[in-house]
Amino acid sequence: MSLSYSDHKISLLLLNGGVGSRLALDIPKQFHEVNGHPIMAYTLIAASKIEAISEIVLNAPEGHEARTREILDHYAGGKPATLVEAGRSRQQSVHRLVKVATNPRVLIHETARPMVTQAMFQALIDHEADNVGYFDDIHFSMCRMDQKTQTVSKNVRREKVFNIQLPQKFDRLTLAAAHKTALKKGVTFTEDAVMVHKMTDAKVHALPGDPRNIKVTTQNDLITILQLNQTDRIL
């Protein structure tokens, strides 16, 4: 009997090395507590329930490795975790994580998105495509700007652009090849879906994103996360 696609093991690559300078907290934001748990723990709670995730590969802000380990011990549900040194850029960090991953498929997530759910991870794992991510609609108007004159130059049709969210799923070798090529060509990307599309001939498929799955970047985002956690109780 052959295994169904969902039975294959997958590695969770976690970007956890941010220092959260824009939040002006005295600790990196992933260690800041929301409803009693560090922000980082929410991702681990969602992932701990998924059997297919057989390993976690992550980084930590410099000097916070011990706290990261403590949180893993208490929230990763016994899943083995490997700490990898963060890179100088997000791209380099992902490259380092993917080199250490051992499964044929990888999930990429960032702990600064604590609203991720078990269902979001599971839908990626169950998706038949090798490379797939979440892309949310743009709910506001946008334009291009002439940088020199600081005047409006062109409209941007929002139905043609999307908010790239995490988590994403990739074939490990495809992702590794994309990073290798990008490095060789000296090009940088701020995330991996467009990188894989540009640097390989692989297709990256889209699942509809969720406006609640925000990345905590500012103080306002922290308030939003708190409120989302509170309203869950009422809705």
């Binding site: 409803n35 009693g36 748990h37 929410y42 709670i45 969602a46 956690n229 869950d232 109780r233």
Partner: peptide, 10 residues
Amino acid sequence: EVLSDELKPY
């Protein structure tokens, strides 16, 4: 009461 809140994400 504490656990009711803390275990909500689970």
